[in-house]
């Protein structure tokens, strides 16, 4: 989908939301949700092609496969957490959105644990042993 189409979709969705908010607020919330889903669907194909580029670059540069996987997983977790936090914030649950963001950060840190330990081991190997 083109960028113009996505912007138009957003404008149409906001108009429908404003109309529907007065009459039926639960349906208006579904409008928000489905708009996010449509926009993400139109973007995700491009994301996958970008990831193929990143992965081919990584294999050419002899980066270990585990690290690339971890990076992609971290980006995925960030996207999902962002989506969920935005939707819950739109529904008026700001505190739940903050908790979702916290959970996303913790899972990202959990995924980064092997990389951090590898870095620390490399640093320790550089240090002179007495």
């Amino acid at each position: 989908m083109d960028i113009v189409q996505i912007v138009t979709l957003g404008i149409v969705a906001s108009i429908l939301y404003i109309i529907l908010k007065e009459i039926n607020s639960s349906m208006a919330f579904f409008i928000i949700l489905i708009t996010g889903i449509i926009i993400f669907f139109s973007v995700i194909q491009q994301i996958s092609s970008i990831f193929q580029l990143i992965q081919s670059l990584g294999t050419k540069a002899n980066v270990e496969g585990m690290y690339m996987d971890t990076i992609l997983k971290i980006i995925g977790i960030a996207y999902i957490a962002e989506l969920g936090a935005g939707i819950t914030k739109d529904a008026g649950l700001g505190s739940v959105a903050a908790k979702i963001e916290l959970a996303g950060k913790i899972f990202i840190l959990l995924l980064a644990v092997p990389i951090i330990s590898a870095v620390i081991e490399a640093i320790i190997r550089f240090l002179p042993t007495t």
Binding site: V12, I19, L20, N24, M27, F30, I31, I34, I38
Partner: peptide
Amino acid sequence: MFTDASVLFQIAGIGIIVA
């Protein structure tokens, strides 16, 4: 499945009719 905006109008229509 969700590549166009028709589902948006569908939901808005259902909402208005139900109201």
